[in-house]
Amino acid sequence: MPRPIVWRGAGLGNEIFPWAKAYIASRELGFRLLRPAWGLNRRNYRQEFGTSRLDFLQHATLRLAMPVVTVTDELVQSTGETDYGAAMRVLDAEYGWSRRRSIILLHQGMAGGHLAIERARGYLRNTLLGRLPERGCPDDCGPDKGQLRVAMHIRLGDFSQDSTGPQPGVFNRRLPLSWYLSVLETLQERYSDSLHIDLVSDDPLQAAQMLSGWRTCDARSRSILEDLSIMATADLLVCSVSAFSMLAAFLSDAPYLWYRPHLHEYGDFLSISGYKSQQMSGGTGENLKKERRIGCDALPTRGVAVDSSGELPHWLTDFLTTKAALNRRSADLVRCGVVPRHSSVPVSEPLSS
C-alpha cells in the first residue's frame, strides 16, 4: 500500500510544512499518512506528542523495504501550481504514483509557504491546538471584567541581534526591544486595566527580564504546544519574525502585528515573502493583483504592519475595543450573564449586509 512519509526536522514552525504536505498528498492520492519521526528531532518534540524515542525506526524500515520518491520544491514548482494538492494531482498524472503497488513519497521544503498548505489548516488545528495550560494566570482579572488578551512572542535563543532588526527577506533575527515596548505602550494607553499580556518565548525568563516594567502572565516555561495554543486563541498576536509566529498566525483567526521594516514594499502594498521572483509569480503576485483590482488598500487586514512608533490603525483599536467588550462574562448568556432587553438597533430597520 503506498504511503507518504515525512522525515525529521527542526523547529515546529518549519516542521509542519513537510508534515502538512504529506497530509495533503495522502488525501489527494489515497495514501496512508505517516507522522513525523519526532524521536530524531533535536528539540525533543517526541515528549510533546507522546511518541517513542525510537519512532524513527519504523520510518527507516519502510525506506529500506520500499522504493522512495522525494517530492522536492523544484518538482512542485515545475507544475506551476501554488496549492500543494493541485500540484500533487499534476505530478501524479505524469508519474502515476497512485497506480503503483508500493511506494513512499517523501515530502520536503517550504515552497509556496502557508498558502500552499491551506488545505491542511483544519488538520493542523485539530492536531496541534487544544493544549492551553490548565492553571490560569494569577494576574487574571475577575470573571466579570472584559479583557483583551494579547499574546506577545519574543524569539531569543540562537536568533542574532542587531540594532536595526531584520530587513526584508532576512529571518533568524531578533526584533528590537524598543518595538515591543512601543506596542505595549500603545496598548496600555488604550486599554489600561482591560489589557492582559501572555508572554510567549523560547526563553521566558530572559524575555520577562527584558520587559521587567510590564506585568505579564506567568513568565514560566511552557511546552511548545501550550505556547502555540495560547497564541492561536489570543485576541491579538504580536509576532516575532519567526516560523513559529507565522504558524500561530496561520492557525489563528485573530489579527496580528508584524514588524514593518521586515516587509518588502510593492508600491502601496507590503509583503513578507514577495521578495523572491518565484513568489511574485505565484501566490504573492496573484494576491497583489487582486488587492489592486478590488481596491482593498483602505480595508482592515489580519496582518498589520507596525513601525517603531507602535501606532495602530484606528480600525484595529476599534475592533479590539469591541473584542474586549465581547469577552466580559457578565454579558455572556451561557455563563449566567445578562443582555439588554432592548436592542440598540431598532427591530423595524433591517440590517445592511
Rank of each mutant, 00 (worst) to 15 (best):
316 L>A: 04
300 P>F: 07
337 G>A: 09
145 K>L: 11
115 L>M: 02
72 T>P: 06
65 A>T: 06
329 R>D: 03
313 P>K: 08
189 E>L: 04
5 I>R: 07
221 S>D: 07
10 A>R: 13
38 W>Q: 07
153 H>A: 05
74 E>P: 00
42 R>K: 12
43 R>A: 10
342 H>V: 14
301 T>Y: 00
212 S>P: 02
137 C>Y: 02
97 W>M: 01
243 A>E: 11
100 R>D: 00
113 G>D: 05
292 R>G: 15
230 I>Q: 10
310 G>C: 06
146 G>R: 11
299 L>P: 00
11 G>A: 10
190 R>Y: 02
15 E>P: 00
283 G>P: 06
283 G>H: 14
293 R>A: 14
178 S>T: 09
247 L>A: 12
102 S>T: 07
206 Q>L: 09
200 V>G: 08
119 R>D: 15
149 R>E: 14
236 L>F: 13
116 A>T: 02
286 E>T: 15
346 P>N: 08
33 L>H: 12
156 L>Q: 12
335 R>E: 14
323 K>V: 14
332 D>I: 01
303 G>E: 07
8 R>F: 08
198 D>S: 13
48 E>Y: 07
238 V>F: 12
152 M>V: 15
142 G>H: 03
85 G>C: 04
71 V>G: 04
279 Q>W: 14
13 G>M: 05
331 A>P: 00
140 D>T: 05
72 T>F: 00
18 P>I: 00
69 V>P: 02
319 F>M: 08
313 P>N: 03
103 I>N: 01
156 L>H: 01
128 L>F: 13
129 L>I: 08
199 L>S: 05
212 S>T: 09
250 F>L: 09
48 E>I: 02
105 L>C: 01
233 T>I: 05
112 G>I: 07
40 L>N: 10
97 W>F: 14
43 R>K: 12
287 N>T: 10
82 T>M: 06
187 L>D: 09
14 N>T: 04
90 V>K: 13
91 L>T: 01
91 L>S: 00
78 S>D: 11
35 R>C: 04
169 G>K: 12
217 C>K: 11
160 S>K: 13
143 P>G: 01
241 V>N: 15
248 A>P: 01
120 A>H: 02
156 L>D: 07
346 P>S: 01
199 L>Y: 06
268 D>L: 03
132 L>N: 07
118 E>K: 15
3 R>V: 12
215 R>I: 09
298 A>L: 09
199 L>C: 10
67 P>D: 06
133 P>K: 04
38 W>K: 10
268 D>M: 00
236 L>P: 14
195 L>R: 06
94 E>W: 03
32 R>P: 05
186 T>V: 04
304 V>S: 09
32 R>Y: 04
33 L>Y: 15
203 D>S: 10
121 R>G: 11
161 Q>H: 08
139 D>N: 05
193 D>F: 00
95 Y>T: 01
31 F>T: 01
280 M>N: 15
345 V>I: 08
349 E>V: 13
125 R>W: 03
73 D>C: 02
85 G>R: 06
191 Y>V: 04
146 G>W: 05
21 K>D: 11
348 S>D: 15
235 D>F: 04
261 P>R: 13
77 Q>D: 07
9 G>N: 04
49 F>G: 15
274 G>H: 07
297 D>K: 11
50 G>F: 00
229 S>R: 10
200 V>Q: 08
